[in-house]
Simulated assay, not measured.
Amino acid sequence: MATHKILVIDDSRVIRNMVRDMLPKGNFEVLEAKDGVEGINTIHQEHPNLIMLDFLLPRMSGWEVFQEIQAKPNLRAPLVLMSGRKEEVTEKIQEPFEYFEFIEKPFEQRELVEAIKSAMVKFKKWPQPAMASAPAAGGATSSADVEALTKKIDKMQAEINMLKKQMAQILNFIKQKMR
């Protein structure tokens, strides 16, 4: 029985088959999803060890799948984003890609294997929220708790951004006075 699961989310059967054929033979199972909704459902059910995600998908885009994975740490796995147009990816996600790998279609087997290796390394750097490893005293964490914490994090990030902006303004003011 396969010990590792690789999920390929792409609306093109040709790409899904190509990825399956290019993967080195080993002790893993290749799962497939033809759109973002099916991909998210498969991630929830199967908890893959690696996700290969096309950026342009029907029903739920790769960007939306990526955002859901970002928002829910229990869905995370090493991630390789795939697209024939890198500029569409960089419009939404700024480089350098810190926690996942990107591969431009079409690609060769060597490029695919390197992207997977890189995604595995980058995944280890992905910050895990304290919440993911320490459930509430009651045992389980409710979605309301997670949502409340997410709102607090968003508020704190906005405050941090405001403080950074104020600090830059202060530094500019000091520089002007020192001239």
Rank of each mutant, 00 (worst) to 15 (best):
residue 11 D to S: 13
residue 12 S to K: 07
residue 15 I to E: 06
residue 16 R to D: 02
residue 16 R to K: 04
residue 17 N to A: 07
residue 19 V to S: 02
residue 24 P to W: 00
residue 26 G to N: 06
residue 26 G to T: 08
residue 29 E to G: 02
residue 29 E to M: 08
residue 30 V to R: 02
residue 30 V to Q: 03
residue 33 A to K: 04
residue 33 A to C: 09
residue 34 K to V: 08
residue 46 E to C: 08
residue 48 P to K: 07
residue 50 L to C: 03
residue 54 D to V: 04
residue 54 D to M: 04
residue 56 L to S: 12
residue 57 L to A: 07
residue 58 P to V: 10
residue 60 M to C: 06
residue 61 S to V: 09
residue 62 G to R: 01
residue 67 Q to N: 10
residue 69 I to E: 00
residue 75 L to D: 00
residue 77 A to K: 04
residue 83 S to I: 03
residue 86 K to T: 09
residue 88 E to V: 07
residue 89 V to L: 05
residue 90 T to H: 02
residue 90 T to Y: 04
residue 91 E to K: 14
residue 92 K to A: 10
residue 93 I to D: 01
residue 96 P to F: 02
residue 96 P to N: 05
residue 99 Y to F: 14
residue 100 F to S: 06
residue 100 F to M: 11
residue 102 F to G: 02
residue 103 I to C: 06
residue 103 I to L: 15
residue 105 K to H: 08
residue 109 Q to S: 08
residue 110 R to H: 11
residue 113 V to E: 09
residue 114 E to P: 00
residue 114 E to D: 14
residue 115 A to P: 05
residue 115 A to Q: 02
residue 116 I to K: 03
residue 116 I to F: 01
residue 117 K to S: 13
residue 117 K to L: 10
residue 122 K to S: 06
residue 127 P to T: 05
residue 128 Q to C: 09
residue 129 P to V: 05
residue 130 A to C: 06
residue 133 S to E: 11
residue 135 P to N: 10
residue 136 A to Q: 10
residue 136 A to R: 12
residue 139 G to F: 05
residue 139 G to A: 08
residue 140 A to H: 12
residue 143 S to P: 01
residue 144 A to P: 03
residue 145 D to E: 14
residue 145 D to W: 02
residue 150 T to E: 12
residue 151 K to N: 08
residue 153 I to K: 10
residue 155 K to I: 09
residue 158 A to F: 06
residue 159 E to N: 13
residue 159 E to C: 10
residue 160 I to N: 12
residue 162 M to N: 11
residue 164 K to Q: 15
residue 167 M to G: 08
residue 168 A to L: 11
residue 170 I to K: 13
residue 172 N to Q: 14
residue 173 F to N: 12
residue 173 F to G: 09
residue 174 I to P: 09
residue 176 Q to G: 11
residue 176 Q to F: 05
residue 177 K to L: 15
residue 178 M to S: 15
residue 179 R to W: 07
residue 179 R to K: 15
residue 179 R to T: 09
